[in-house]
Structure formats: C-alpha cells, structure tokens
Amino acid sequence: KTVHVDGVEYRFNNPEEADKFVKRLVKEKNGNVEVRGDTYHVE
C-alpha cells in the first residue's frame, strides 16, 4: 500500500499499518481520502 500526503509518498508492507496511518492523518487534517488502486491520497 502507498499513501500520498502533500506530495510525499509513504510505503507500507502491512496494509493494517497503512490504514491506521491514513485514519490518523484524516483526523489531524480533517481531510479526505481518495483511494486509487493500491494508493491512498490524503488531502
């Protein structure tokens, strides 16, 4: 899984860790998540 945040790319081998990371980011930023294939885009 890959997570894109503000143009920075984070790669996770463990999908659960990627999910936790995304949830935390969305809370912090009050942002939205767009999923494209295996990539999460957080804005």
Rank of each mutant, 00 (worst) to 15 (best):
E28H: 06
E43P: 07
T39S: 13
K23G: 10
L25W: 02
A18F: 09
V22G: 06
K20R: 12
D6H: 05
T39C: 15
V26E: 09
E43R: 04
K20H: 11
K20T: 06
L25N: 02
D19W: 10
V22Y: 07
K1D: 02
F12P: 06
H41Y: 15
V22N: 04
H41I: 15
R24H: 14
K20I: 12
G7K: 00
R24T: 12
K23L: 05
E34D: 09
E9G: 00
R11N: 07
K20W: 08
K29D: 11
V22I: 13
V42I: 11
N30Q: 08
H41P: 09
E28M: 07
V35G: 04
N13E: 14
E17A: 03
N13I: 08
N30S: 11
R11V: 11
F21A: 04
E9M: 05
E34W: 08
V22H: 06
H4Y: 15
H4R: 11
V3H: 01
A18T: 01
K29M: 15
V26Q: 09
Y40H: 09
R24Q: 14
A18G: 02
E17N: 00
T2G: 01
G37D: 12
H4C: 15
V33P: 08
E17G: 00
N32G: 06
R36M: 11
N14C: 13
H41R: 03
N14P: 00
R36K: 10
E9H: 01
V42G: 10
K1L: 13
E28I: 08
T2F: 08
K29R: 13
G37V: 12
L25F: 03
H41N: 09
E16C: 14
H41S: 07
R11L: 10
F21R: 01
V3D: 00
H4D: 02
P15W: 12
R24P: 02
K1Q: 07
K27D: 13
G31S: 09
L25P: 00
D38L: 03
K20V: 04
R24E: 14
R11Q: 10
T2C: 15
N30D: 09
P15H: 10
V5L: 05
V22C: 14
V33E: 07
H4Q: 09
F21K: 01
T2P: 03
E9S: 03
E16T: 04
K27S: 11
D19S: 01
K23C: 15
G7I: 00
N32H: 13
R36F: 13
T39P: 07
V22L: 12
T2E: 01
K20Q: 14
K29C: 15
V26L: 14
R11C: 15
R11E: 12
V35E: 07
E34K: 09
F12M: 00
K23S: 13
N30G: 14
T39I: 11
D19A: 03
A18Y: 12
G37M: 09
D19Y: 11
L25K: 03
D6R: 02
V33W: 09
N32L: 10
Y10P: 05
T39A: 10
N13W: 02
R11H: 14
V26W: 06
D38K: 04
D6F: 05
N30A: 09
N14E: 06
G7R: 00
E16Q: 05
G37P: 07
G37W: 12
E43D: 10
V35S: 06
H41V: 12
Y10H: 10
P15V: 09
G7M: 00
H4K: 13
Y40L: 11
D38F: 01
V5F: 10
T39Q: 11
V22W: 04
E17R: 00
D6S: 01
N14K: 01
V33L: 12
G31K: 06
T39V: 11
D38I: 02
V33I: 07
V8Y: 04
D6V: 00
P15F: 08
V5R: 00
K20E: 15
T2V: 11
H41E: 13
R36V: 12
E17H: 00
K27I: 08
E9T: 05
V26T: 07
H41T: 07
K1S: 10
V42M: 07
F12H: 01
K27E: 11
K27V: 08
F12K: 02
Y10T: 09
N13F: 05
V35Q: 05
K29V: 11
D6Q: 02
V5H: 07
F21W: 02
E43T: 14
E16K: 03
N32P: 04
K27R: 11
V22T: 07
V3C: 11
V42S: 07
D38P: 09
K23P: 07
N14F: 03
K27T: 09
K29S: 13
G7W: 00
F21Y: 02
R24L: 12
K23V: 10
R36P: 12
H4F: 15
V42H: 06
N32F: 13
N13L: 08
L25V: 07
V33Q: 03
D19H: 05
E9W: 06
K23N: 11
G31I: 12
E9D: 06
N13G: 05
K29I: 13
V3S: 01
R24K: 14
N14R: 00
F12L: 00
D19I: 11
L25R: 00
E16F: 04
R24N: 14
E17V: 00
Y40G: 08
R24W: 12
N14D: 13
G31Q: 07
P15Q: 13
E9Q: 04
K1W: 15
V35K: 10
N14Q: 01
V8N: 04
V22D: 07
V35W: 11
K29Q: 10
V33M: 08
L25T: 05
K23F: 00
R11D: 06
N32K: 13
V22Q: 03
K23M: 06
D38A: 02
N13Q: 11
D19M: 04
E17W: 01
V22M: 11
K29L: 15
E9R: 03
Y10W: 02
V42Y: 08
G7D: 03
V33H: 02
E34N: 09
V26P: 03
V8T: 06
D19F: 05
E9F: 04
E34A: 09
E43K: 09
P15I: 11
N32A: 09
